[in-house]
């Protein structure tokens, strides 16, 4: 089974795609370690997006796919940030997948 090793030696179980198996294991430190493996250095611009995602998951119980993710960021952080290009710069690859992973959410199931 895959796992994430924290500096304090704790081991966090991950699924086969590298997402947390148990959301309750999430902490900012876990996010930083997950990001480091990509590698991404988390800045305030990253954190505000991760917070929006976590709040969305708490309310709705789903990890948003790409288009709803972009719309969600536009709704909560403004239209200058709710754009694919902005989010792609912050979260390389598929931003919805990468950001969900760092936010400790399950893999968006409707994301291609």
């Amino acid at each position: 089974m895959r796992s994430l090793q924290l500096p304090n030696k704790a081991s966090i179980p991950l699924d086969k795609d590298g997402y947390l198996r148990d959301m309750s294991n999430w902490s900012p430190e876990v996010a930083e370690q997950l990001a480091a493996a990509i590698p991404i250095t988390l800045t305030p611009a990253h954190w505000e997006v991760l917070e929006v995602l976590r709040a969305f998951y708490q309310t709705h119980g789903i990890s948003p796919a790409t288009r709803p993710f972009v719309k969600l960021v536009a709704r909560d952080l403004g239209s200058d940030k709710g754009r694919s290009i902005y989010l792609m710069k912050l979260f390389p690859g598929n931003p919805a997948l990468t950001a969900s992973k760092l936010a400790g959410l399950p893999r968006p199931s409707n994301c291609f």
């Binding site: 969305f56 309310t59 709705h60 119980g61 789903i62 948003p64 796919a65 288009r67 709803p68 719309k71």
Partner: peptide, 15 residues
């Protein structure tokens, strides 16, 4: 079980 009804309120984001 997971709350299905919570997801319905997210449907506008999915248009």
């Amino acid at each position: 079980a997971k709350d299905l009804s919570a997801a319905f309120t997210a449907l506008p984001l999915y248009e």
